[in-house]
Amino acid sequence: MVVSRWLGAWCIGALAGVALGAGPAPAADKVSVSALTFVSSAPLFIAQDRGHFAKEGLEVEIKFFTAAQPVAVAVTSGDADFGTTGLTAGYFNLAGKGTITIVCAQSREERGWEFNAYVASNQAYAAGLTGLDKLPGRNFGISTIGSSHHYMLGKLAERRGFAMDQVKLAPLQTVPNMIAAVKSGQVDATLLPAQYANDLQAKGEAKVIGWVHEETPWQLGAVFTSPKMIAERRPVVERFVRAWVAAASEYDAEFQKRDAQGKRVFGPNADALIAIIQKYTKAEPAVIKVSLPYIDPQGRLLVRDLYDQVRWYQAQNMVDKTVDAKAIVDLSFVKGHLDVPN
């Protein structure tokens, strides 16, 4: 009859309306992320400003810190739901207590992409420190024991076949101290990010004698969250990782394409992304362009390397032997992680 047909259409319309979300929009999930104002956190800034978080229904508050340790501690103490920073022995000791879990990749040292450089002082270079093989017997500036610099030097020693204790470590606490020390010749060599290394070289204040990506590629940074988040708010974690990966893909498309000669080629939206990065890091676009680390476009981790890192630190007695490398990584949020051991 006419009435029943009209009623039926109304019912179908109502159902469709409900199905299409024709009511008031659902509230976004609020989460917080701890990070440093470094270029390596770029996917975070891009996800925020290019709407990737919003698309996943996430309202993200970024909490900035000035050192790597507090970034991890913030997630441990519940002050932040997520965090992203470079990996150190301190991170693994915290992770070993079961309070933070790595879920996807941040920056890494990848062959062919400049990130961290070995820099020698002019005095040491003139005295013969012209290559990485000549490091034994020299002193080497790092930030602190158990830092990423310490790890990179250790891996270099393994690769180049010298004993690490043949290099005298000079813990200097901060990167500005390391720059000053190598400039004034108070340390023979140190590790510096590309923008500082190239700058010193260009001004003739120090000499670049090697690049980490050519020697020991490794998983430098990661994104992590708490086991509690994974257990209680797994969908939120999945959406966060999805947004991050979307941003990383954009980063890859605009910054990590190469021409036929292998030189980096910037994409059409590169300047827009650089402007976003500038907004958060306060660095000049020219500096940003030379300090872009390699970031996996799909957030894939170098898994074997992660386990290696834990093992190496444990062998140096810097990380507690009870820390289980497998237990501190959750590989389920990203497909196709790299170099997964069986």
Binding site: Q69, A89, G90, Y91, L94, I145
Partner: peptide
């Protein structure tokens, strides 16, 4: 130094 780097190592 031990106290300082132990803090950095979260030990």
């Amino acid at each position: 130094a031990l106290v300082l780097f132990s803090g950095n190592l979260m030990r």
